[in-house]
Design a protein around this nucleic acid. Structure first.
Lengths: 344, 344
DNA sequence: TTGTACGCGTTATCAC
DNA sequence: GTGATAACGCGTACAA
């Protein structure tokens, strides 16, 4: 199917002038007579002429497009980040090409190739859960295309990064539980090959050891989905290992845990306090409303995009790589807060 | 910033052969000697050569790209649709360019221009809440670019469409409430300039009149967000108009209502049964879990994209426009279902 | 078997 | 003031 769109040539033919004259007239070039300009602009408007950005990109050797590789759009956090990305990109006259890895390494590699084939000027990446090898990404850099990681970064790869202060936020979240008088706090952790998974766990453990908590109290389990959390709570109960508080790697996990806890006839927060991470809509919808760390997804998107555009526009300068930290805010809600009575 | 990517010319220069030979070698053209092919392919691999899709698009006058205009990515339903779109598009070798209208008419007009400027071969659209005029979309069609509407269609515009059986599903949802013995059922409606808003309300009213319900029982209020629903429940209470059941235009609205109802010390579903629409994750996270109509967002995306690709690949044929209806499934959960006792 | 010429839409650089 | 030409990267009919 050929896009039957009007070109500069069409206008030139209609007016019996050359394409270059049309081009200049449209750009309000001083050399062109105002009469010609009028004629050209009128016809262009009537024919709804639009410059062909593809051709422009070819000529100018820059596509004014940036690429994004994310695990899944349907995750609220990522959709927020994308909104932030688009916001900044569009205002700067850039188009955004979004690719989903669906948490698959192979797919992520493909995404990288798709984007470079489209000659995007820069790429924003958040790693899939499977990704352990980063060659497909360093290849991009070798091609001279700037890369900015957000949230799920690649350790060891030299590049700009935007992250949450995961460890610190996890530390605070755990301290909050300790302050509530909780003794046996467990952690439902994310995949440990991701830095965010490790960092959050690390912060959790630090808080416990800082509290001089008895060894063995830091029960960590890898569970990062609603379903896994639901099952894990049941398993812990059967093993007689139910904690009195739970810090989860993300909100959906926390909510799965809450559902499971309640299904067992126990109460949140009275019997088990629960805290999530990466505050999205879920936290306020949950019952009870969920204490969580607000990761400011939209902001993360805007910051990352600005870094990328800076990098693109200063490609010559060999500026050092930057890591920006967006501070997560612990928002305390009912799922972890005892209003009056104490637990026993 | 110039994408310093390797071109066919670079390879040709290195090997002291002409660019066309390189081109043919890369395509495994029979005319080329296997020795030359080997040389070319080896060097191409070493240099990580990738064909410039932009240049190809220009030459072949087809960009292998489709555009999407949606209100907001952060809506779970829309993010599901996008996943479906990407799934089909990528398998067909198409790239997807996503634009958000942010529910603004002006922005939607801009999106349309951006996409045509990029010479996308077809466009998928779901209207913003503000949109009442459709010229920016018919302009696209006049340009010979196929258009497919999904979910939020433009009445009067001749184009392919994919929709939910909104009226019927709303009818069923309301009937379900009637079957539960509810007498005073209210509707929290969406914007009435959108067809889906009107249809869902229509279905609601039909069910009531079919039940020979007393006039005035069909209380309709325009409220389509969490906050509006929350406030509206309070207002109804103050006005002494609280219903015993509530059918909401979407899930988030339903959940806002539930939160408000509970804040008033009333129970769901015992005092007020609640039903939502467009079943997303929210429905299963809500407490109690929410009865809702599953709109099958992912499927809607795949179906719409297939229609669009068909249209693109059969541009010559003047096929009649098609409307596909994806049946919504009413999924009954705790928010509307009385297990044992009856209401009084 | 390989090279040359052309065109996709656009603009910068010459020429006139 | 305007027109012709070349170039961006690629594929292909045609020539050699």
């Amino acid at each position: 199917m050929k896009t039957g769109q009007v070109t500069i040539k069409d206008i030139a033919r209609h007016l019996n002038i050359s394409p270059s004259t049309v081009s200049r007239a449209l750009q309000d070039h001083p050399d062109i007579s105002s009469e010609t300009k009028r004629l050209v602009c009128e016809l262009a408007a009537r024919l709804k002429y639009q410059p062909n950005i593809v051709a422009l990109g070819l000529k100018q050797r820059r596509t004014k497009t940036i690429g994004v590789i994310i695990p899944e759009i349907v995750h609220f956090f990522f959709s927020q980040v994308i909104s932030g990305i688009e916001d900044v990109a569009y205002k700067a006259g850039y188009t955004v090409m979004i690719c989903q890895s669906n948490e698959k390494y192979e797919r992520e590699k493909n995404n990288a190739l798709t984007l470079t084939a489209h000659r995007v000027e820069g790429i924003l990446v958040s790693l899939s859960k499977e990704t352990c090898d980063y060659e497909h990404l360093t290849d991009i850099q070798d091609n001279g295309i700037p890369l900015v990681f957000f949230d799920r970064i690649a350790p060891g790869v030299e590049a700009d990064q935007v992250i949450t202060n995961d460890r610190e936020a996890a530390y605070q979240a755990t301290c909050h539980l300790l302050e509530q008088g909780r003794k046996r706090i467990a952690h439902f952790a994310g995949p440990q090959n991701l830095v965010i998974g490790r960092e959050r766990k690390e912060g959790f453990l630090q808080a416990l050891s800082g509290a001089g908590s008895p060894s063995g109290s830091g029960l960590c389990v890898e569970a990062d989905t609603f379903d896994k959390a639901f099952r894990e709570v049941i398993r812990l109960r059967e093993a007689g290992q139910l904690p009195d508080a739970l810090f989860c790697n993300n909100d959906l996990t926390a909510i799965g845990a809450i559902k499971s806890i309640r299904a067992l006839g126990l109460r949140v927060p009275e019997d088990i306090a629960v805290v999530g991470f990466s505050d999205g809509v879920f936290a306020t919808i949950s019952e009870p409303v969920l204490t969580s760390v607000d990761q400011h997804g939209f902001t993360m998107g805007t910051v990352a995009t600005r870094m990328l555009l800076d990098r693109i526009n200063n490609a010559e300068k060999e500026l050092p790589f930057i890591t920006k930290v967006i501070k997560g805010d612990l928002i305390i809600r009912d799922s972890s807060k005892l209003s009056l009575s104490s637990t026993q």
